[in-house]
Structures are given as C-alpha cells and as structure tokens.
Simulated scan of single mutants.
Amino acid sequence: MEELPKDIVPLQQDFYEQPTLELAMAMLGCLLVKETHQGISAGFIVETEAYKGPGDRAAHSYNNRRTARTEVMFHRSGLAYTYLMHTHCLFNVVSGGEEKPEAILVRALEPRYGIDIMKTRRGLEELKNLTNCPGKLTKSLGITMEDYGCSLTHPPIYLAKGFYPESISVGKRIGIENTGEARDYPWRFWVTNNQFVSRHQKFEYEVNLKP
C-alpha cells in the first residue's frame, strides 16, 4: 500500500481563515488527501470555484438559506461541505467564518498518490479522466457524504502543501446559467494550462505568480 512522504502534513486552521476569494486561489496546488480502509489517495487541486454566501445567487446559502444541507456553511472555516448533485457527491471547503456561509468547490485534481486505488474505484485506466471534474474526483478519492462536516486539519480528509502554481487563470463559474448577475462573477480559478482542469474556456485574466 502506497504511503505518503513524512513531510506531508495537514494545513492548520489559520490557512482557512483567509477571505474566500484569496483562499480559493491559495488552494490551487495544495494536496487534497483522503484516507480510507482501502488506502490513501491524493491529488493536487488544480481548479476551484468560490461561492460567497448570502449575496451570491449561485450559492446554496443565498439569502442566508439555512437548511440541513447548508448548516455546515454557517460554522467555522476549514470544514468539509459535501452534497449530492444528481448521483454525484461534490466536495467543498467551508470559508468565510462563523455565521458567514461561504464555500469553495474543488472542481479538479491532478492525481498524485494512490492512483491504482483511484483507477479501481472509477474502473478506468486513463489518468486524465480520473479526477477532472467534481464528481469524478470524489469517487476517485473515496470522498462521500460521510465526510460532511469533517475538519480538514487532520485525517481522514485534509489539505497539505503541494506545489506553487506559476500562473493562475481566472474566469466565470460553470453550470450556473440561471443565477442572474452571479453567472458572470469571475470566481473560478485554475492552474493555467493544466491538463486536468475540468473545462478549458476563455479566461478573464491571468495572475502570474513567478517571482
């Protein structure tokens, strides 16, 4: 069974205290790790989408909508918000702080550890298609609704340091056409030219992070 290098440790609470848009960009390149009885699987986050709560018509918590599904969004940052979309479980990181229900959807990963486990779970051999959309990545890593509300500062699910992107692309979010002006907010972020991004589309601008 593949093991992670000993220097891969969970990011701590202060990482998640960043403002939501900043956190969505900071998460790019981080390693998302999930431990299960089958083993450890992990991938680098290469695409995120930010949802800014009560004033964002695309957010589940728009107008402070508080339901059994959105309850975790009203709690502290750095918790897992999982929900079902059709038959797929999607994984989000709670942000914004208590009583400020915001979250960041992880849209795509670059597979790194436990790739054989991912292939078995997906019934696929092609690396590119294992984790290149929100529903695929959760199935590949074994993320389920049981992870709802879990703290991301320790196993079984957490973020760790990974790589630092040279460039980040910024554009509109995907699949939210019926949300009025919110559909045009440039709150989708991805590692420029990364082959595992879910959908390559026109970007609003790029952020060059080279020194």
Score class of each variant (00 low, 15 high):
V191L: 04
K100C: 13
N129S: 15
I176H: 00
G43L: 00
R188T: 07
N132E: 02
E49Y: 09
R188H: 02
K52Y: 12
I174C: 07
G123F: 10
L209D: 00
L159H: 08
R199K: 00
V170C: 06
R183I: 11
G29D: 06
D7R: 13
I157S: 09
H88S: 11
S151K: 13
A103E: 08
D147E: 03
F91C: 07
I104A: 00
R183N: 11
T36H: 05
K202D: 15
K34H: 08
R122M: 06
I176F: 00
L11T: 06
Y158A: 08
E17A: 12
H60Y: 09
L21K: 09
K139C: 10
V9Q: 14
R112P: 05
K139F: 10
L152T: 09
N129F: 13
E47I: 06
Y158Q: 07
N178D: 13
G96V: 05
K6F: 13
I40E: 01
N63G: 12
M73F: 04
I176T: 01
N63C: 14
H200Y: 10
I115M: 05
F189M: 05
E71L: 00
N194A: 07
G180C: 03
N193L: 00
E49P: 09
T87G: 11
F196N: 07
L130F: 05
K210V: 15
G171M: 10
W190R: 08
C150L: 15
L159N: 03
L79K: 07
D14K: 08
A26H: 12
I143T: 04
M73G: 02
L11W: 06
A160F: 01
N194K: 08
G180Q: 03
G114R: 05
K6C: 09
